[in-house]
Amino acid sequence: MLGKLLIGFLLLSPPALAGPDSQWVLDQSALTYHVSHPLHQSEGVSHAARGKGVCHEGQCDFLIAVPVKSFDSGDSNRDIHMLQVTRGAQFPIVTVRTRVPESASTSATISLDLEIQFAGQTAQYKQVPFQRVVQGNETRINGTIPAKLSDFKIDPPSLLTMPVKNDFPIRVDLSWHPM
């Protein structure tokens, strides 16, 4: 009977056994977008990203989320305009998902396939290169996402009737540590 109970317990408890192999948490972050206008360049930075990575069966799934309104360009007027053109009140969170083979976590350069949800649209960026630097318990990831306004169906905002360029590269600097 004890054997049956044990077998029953084991059969009903796979969720506990199939838990994640390891997890990562985002410690510090700087996400910076860059916008080009014929009259000037501007940048907006957010340090408000949250992120988590879960590794399971050799694959690590990462999710990073950042509120649209947390980007600060140093100009409140521009920030509110950015919030409007990106439909930031309607879609307040930008999410970035990626999957990395666990074995890739030892490479100095990694290329990631990213799925970004922003402004109510989803866009994929294939093989975006990132630098990986390990400092003690911390793993730092740096790179630039070659985002375009048209990928998210965002009308380029204009100043003095001149629109900004379609490209708005996003510089990424993330520090992760294992949980």
């Binding site: 396939d113 799925e115 989803t122 866009a123 998210f152 169906k153």
Partner: peptide, 15 residues
């Protein structure tokens, strides 16, 4: 969706 590049692999990680 906008014109997109290939997507990442399917999210078959239950966690």
């Amino acid at each position: 969706e906008p014109a997109q590049k290939p997507a990442p692999g399917p999210p078959n990680n239950p966690a």
